[in-house]
Design a binder for these strands. Structure first.
Length: 99
DNA sequence: ATGTTGACACCGG
DNA sequence: TCCGGTGCCAACA
């Protein structure tokens, strides 16, 4: 399964997130076999923006630290439901296999 | 090898 | 629900 390197796997996973859906750093880490969610954030920062990074949020639904404004904008544009400053995980969480 | 840093997660108050 | 401290693991100087 891991014909690709871990960083590449993570990016592929993020790309697989459907429009209007989100995944937490921890979920992606587990799904891709990363030992720590911090690694996911690192990969995304290095990548720069060739993947829909805005669809990756914290496990509690809060947004990333520096780009939170931008991120919320993009997510709302995709129809993601917000509750104050947090994503409605209950409705938008994507596990990578859900229908 | 050791200490610092970070696009995180979890727990207690 | 909000805030702060603690635990994690990998990358870097």
């Amino acid at each position: 399964m891991s014909d690709e390197s871990l960083p590449h796997r993570i990016l592929a996973c993020v790309e697989s997130i459907p429009r209007g859906r989100v995944m937490s750093y921890g979920d992606i880490a587990e799904y891709c076999g990363a030992n720590t969610p911090r690694l996911v954030g690192r990969v995304l920062s290095l990548d720069g923006g060739t993947v829909p990074w805005h669809r990756v949020v914290r496990s509690d639904g809060s947004l990333a630290t520096h780009k939170s404004d931008r991120q919320r904008e993009l997510l709302e544009a995709e129809g993601v439901r917000f509750r104050r400053e947090r994503v409605d995980m209950r409705a938008c969480r994507w596990d990578g296999a859900q229908s």
